[in-house]
């Protein structure tokens, strides 16, 4: 089993940290993982994206050209990444911030009110956690409990309140499916 994932959005939406949490959780489940972010000058433009590969076999290429799964957090990324998704792939997008809708009919499209749910929990910036919760529940690539453990181990400087809030956002995302 190999799942190739691209996460994309604005800088500040926690794109990179979502990718790292996902990769880290994969490692905790003894899977082979790679995480590769956009970097350097590309980052300065305000957009961010990263590729995560989670596999039962050694990961060949860390660069994802044709993802199995897309997590799209803002409008510009939708148009850019939609054509890359494999036929039959899953397209998660942040409905709160994205007005348009994917055009393809050979993919599964899941619209998630990520920011709305996050705001409801009291913090817009945990929209990324809502998305991750939805992702693992819908696709079964990893366990929700592993993601919770992963965020606790990676966000070493976060307050315990923040960590609990992240857990809640993961749960709310997973409850969508």
């Amino acid at each position: 089993m190999t799942k190739e994932i691209i996460i994309a959005g604005f800088g500040g939406q926690g794109i990179v940290s979502s990718g790292i949490i996902l990769g880290y959780a994969g490692m905790l489940e003894n899977k082979n993982v790679t995480f590769f972010p956009s970097y350097g000058a590309e980052m300065r433009g305000g957009t961010a994206n990263c590729s995560v590969v989670i596999s039962s076999e050694p990961v060949a290429s860390p660069i994802v050209a044709y993802p199995d799964i897309l997590i799209i957090m803002n409008e510009p990324s939708l148009a850019r990444f939609e054509p890359m998704l494999k036929p039959g792939g899953i397209f998660f997008y942040n409905k709160t911030l994205i007005k348009s809708h994917p055009k393809r009919d050979d993919i599964t499209v899941l619209a998630i009110e990520a920011n709305a749910i996050a705001e409801e929990l009291g913090q817009g910036r945990i929209a990324n956690m809502v998305m991750l919760g939805a992702l693992v529940k819908k696709t079964d690539i990893l366990k929700l409990e592993t993601l919770k453990k992963a965020q606790r181990e990676r966000f070493v400087k976060a307050s315990s309140e923040q960590l609990s809030l992240n857990d809640k956002a993961l749960e709310r995302g997973s409850e969508l499916y």
């Binding site: 790292i20 970097y39 860390p62």
Partner: peptide, 10 residues
């Protein structure tokens, strides 16, 4: 190269 340096792996 830039990819190996910027990539994360266990």
């Amino acid at each position: 190269d830039g990819l190996l340096g910027q990539m994360m792996e266990p």
